[in-house]
Simulated scan of single mutants.
Amino acid sequence: MIELGKKQIMYVVKKTPLGIFINENPDDLINSIVLSNQELERADDEKVYELGDEIEVYCYLDQKKKLQGTLMPPLLCNGEIGILEAVETNHFGAFLEWGYDKDILMPFSEQLRPIKKGYKVLVGIYEDKSGRLCATQKIKKILRSDSPYKENDQVTGLIYDIKDDMGAFVAVEGKYYGLILTNELLPNMKIGQKIEGRITKVREDGKLNLTTAQRIDFQMDSDSERLYQRLCDADGFLPYHDKTDKDVINKAFNMSKGAFKRALGRLYKEEKILIKEDGIYKI
């Protein structure tokens, strides 16, 4: 079955002076797609294809809703998320540039706020009920929970939402549900930001908990050294402790409240500090 907007293997079923005919079924010529010589040249594909050869293509519907194939990937594939620019708006919604002659539509029902021409928006690509590819700002609807990752795996992701009471919602590798919990948030985190993180937990539902910190044993060393140096630079006193608000900690040290408390605990156990109601004292 042909999947729009995704890379897939097809076969050469006919050759002509103007190009090649391809199909997912190597024995089906009737329902084939034409790849012109101009299309092959545009993709810098110099291979001479023979009947039965495999070829990797992306399929989409053109302005006449006719199935087309191309060797060139879109800016975002079906099921992926990223930032696209609005090039036109009308009574259907906003049209976004995504690498093909036909811009992709983001209907009004898929917009979180009104979109104007020139806006760059964080979207995901999905196939609607009618079989057409569309864009949506409702990223959560296209993410999956069947990732191959396990605890302590390193991943990349894109923050698509932040809620103060829950944390930062992340599309891990552009495909999977991820969450950075509130106590692990950093002050510079924002929607649309790319992050590098580590899996701290794979939940029962398959969703992933993340942190941007290193493994705790490594991170504690780094954080406690940094905190102790700040304490020394401040003549042995800092007006912060384990009850200080997380936003104050984030702003002062650029670390999460959880990381701060772990570093504080490390220094306390090493008998380098005293923790009092008004702050931290160097011993």
Rank of each mutant, 00 (worst) to 15 (best):
Phe253Val: 06
Asp247Ala: 10
Gln111Ile: 05
Met220Pro: 01
Arg215Leu: 08
Arg132Asn: 14
Leu185Glu: 11
Gly82Lys: 03
Lys65Pro: 00
Val48Ser: 13
Val12Tyr: 04
Arg113Gly: 05
Asp205Gln: 01
Leu210Ser: 05
Lys102Leu: 10
Lys14Pro: 00
Gly118His: 03
Leu112Met: 14
Asp164Lys: 15
Glu88Ala: 14
Lys243Arg: 15
Glu80Cys: 05
Asn188Met: 10
Leu112His: 06
Arg230His: 15
Lys141Glu: 13
Val170Asn: 01
Leu112Lys: 15
Glu127Ser: 09
Met1His: 13
Gly265Lys: 11
Asp44Leu: 13
Gly19Asn: 07
Asp221Ser: 10
Gln193Asn: 08
Lys102Arg: 15
Leu35Cys: 04
Met255Gly: 01
Asn183Pro: 02
Lys140Thr: 10
Asp245Arg: 11
Lys47Pro: 05
Thr182Gly: 07
Glu110Arg: 07
Ser32His: 02
Ile139Ser: 13
Pro74Asp: 09
Val48Lys: 14
Ile55Ala: 03
Asp44Val: 06
Asn23Glu: 07
Phe260Ser: 01
Asn209Glu: 12
Gly258Lys: 12
Ile216Phe: 12
Lys102Val: 00
Thr200Trp: 05
Cys59Leu: 14
Val123Thr: 12
Ile180Tyr: 11
Glu85Tyr: 08
Thr200Ser: 12
Val48Glu: 15
Leu51Ile: 15
Leu227Trp: 00
Glu24Asp: 12
Val12Gln: 04
Gly99Thr: 04
Ile216Glu: 11
Leu210Phe: 08
Arg203Tyr: 06
Arg198Glu: 01
Val123Met: 09
Ser32Asp: 07
Lys66Met: 11
Ile83Gly: 01
Ile216Asn: 07
Arg42Gln: 14
Lys140Tyr: 10
Ile83Pro: 00
Gly19Ile: 05
Leu61Lys: 11
Thr136Asp: 04
Leu18Thr: 12
Arg42Lys: 15
Leu210Trp: 02
Val202Arg: 12
Ala168Trp: 02
Arg144Thr: 06
Ile2Gln: 05
Lys163His: 08
Thr156Asp: 12
Asp242Phe: 13
Val87Ile: 15
Pro17His: 04
Lys257Glu: 11
Val48Phe: 08
Asp62Asn: 15
Leu264Gln: 03
Tyr176Asn: 02
Ile139Gln: 10
Leu84Lys: 13
Glu88Lys: 13
Ile83Ala: 02
Ile33Pro: 00
Ala94Ser: 13
Asn31Phe: 10
Asp101Leu: 14
Lys66Leu: 14
Asp53Gln: 08
Leu208Met: 09
Asp101Asn: 09
Leu75Tyr: 15
Ala252Tyr: 08
Ala171Ile: 01
Asp62Glu: 04
Arg144His: 14
Gly69His: 03
Lys138Leu: 13
Phe21His: 10
Glu85Phe: 09
Asp245Gly: 05
Ile30His: 06
Leu4His: 09
Asn37Ala: 01
Lys116Leu: 11
His91Glu: 12
His91Asn: 14
Leu122Asn: 02
Asp27Trp: 13
Glu277Lys: 15
Asp278His: 12
Ala263Ile: 02
Asp164Met: 08
Leu112Tyr: 03
Gly93Asp: 06
Ile162Thr: 07
Gly93Glu: 09
Gly236Tyr: 01
Pro187Gly: 13
Asn254Val: 14
Glu54Leu: 01
Thr212Trp: 03
Tyr149Val: 09
Lys246Thr: 10
